[in-house]
């Protein structure tokens, strides 16, 4: 498993799916471990009842069916698929509605889904998913990207309430890939995935949704910033180490 995870850290992020299925075929006995530890690109299904799309993940899967957060029904239909409690389902409905607005304000498009389920320690777990196709043929408003995908997975373990506060444990993964392509600069492609964790104990006064939402917003902002500044920045630094641009200056002088 350690070697498998080592490989996944080196394989080009855009090939994660191929890499994972190759590992699954080499290590069939570790398949559940692999599937839970390797985040893969998010798939989408259409909810026939309300004509809205929803995101598939391990958390809304039962057998080979996936539960839609919109209609609470399994696709394809499943007789006795597991459902959250009525109370939790109410929170799930609210979370989906509000997270869709959050998503629209930050992503100007995309798809989001929130799933919740009870866990064993009197708390619950919530999974917030976002998928955005930012390519010019998708929902990229500015039309810069030949190909562009952002996928975010936020899993929050919500502890039981203790003296008016609750503990939230957030694990977030962002996977992204983008390609620009033009005559003068050729194909420029960056892809990556990072995972971060955050723990917080906060008063429950404003409610779970407010607490979880703030946490996710802060985390997404941080991750976007580190991808942009740190991760992309490091690859840019590498390019400049390979062939330092100072030569541009030296070269242009004699010409002018």
């Amino acid at each position: 498993m350690e070697a498998a995870m080592g490989l996944m850290r080196r394989i080009p992020p855009k090939h994660i799916e191929t890499g994972l299925s190759a590992l699954l075929s080499l290590l069939p006995h570790h398949s559940s471990e692999l599937l839970s530890q390797v985040d893969q690109p998010l798939q989408v299904l259409s909810d026939m009842d309300c004509g809205k799309e929803f995101i598939l993940c391990e958390y809304n899967r039962d057998a080979d069916s996936y539960r839609s957060p919109w209609s609470n029904k399994y696709h394809p239909p499943l007789e006795d698929g597991s459902l959250p409690s009525l109370q939790l389902r109410k929170l799930e409905i609210e979370a989906n509605d509000i997270f869709a607005i959050y998503r629209d304000q930050y992503y100007e498009g995309g798809i989001s889904s929130v799933y919740m389920w009870e866990d064993d320690n009197e708390g619950f777990v919530a999974c917030f998913l976002i998928k955005k196709d930012g390519s010019k043929t998708g929902q990229g408003r500015r039309g810069y990207l030949q190909e562009g995908a952002w996928e975010a997975i936020h899993v929050i373990e919500v502890g039981p309430e203790e003296e008016g506060t609750t503990n939230y444990r957030l694990t977030s993964t962002v996977m992204l890939s983008l390609t620009t392509n033009n005559e003068s600069s050729g194909t420029f492609s960056l892809s990556g995935s990072i995972r971060r964790e955050m723990n917080m104990r906060v008063p429950l006064a404003e409610g779970h949704l407010c607490n979880m939402g703030r946490m996710i917003e802060e985390m997404e902002g941080k991750m976007r910033n580190s991808l942009d500044q740190v991760y992309f920045g490091k690859t840019r630094e590498m390019v400049c180490t390979l062939r330092p641009p100072s030569e541009v200056v030296q070269m242009r002088m004699p010409e002018s």
Binding site: S189, S191, L227, T235
Partner: peptide, 15 residues
């Protein structure tokens, strides 16, 4: 280019 401290980010550019 590949940067992989707590993540995996790769640049692939062709011209």
């Amino acid at each position: 280019a590949h940067y992989f401290e707590e993540g995996n980010v790769q640049l692939d550019a062709k011209h």
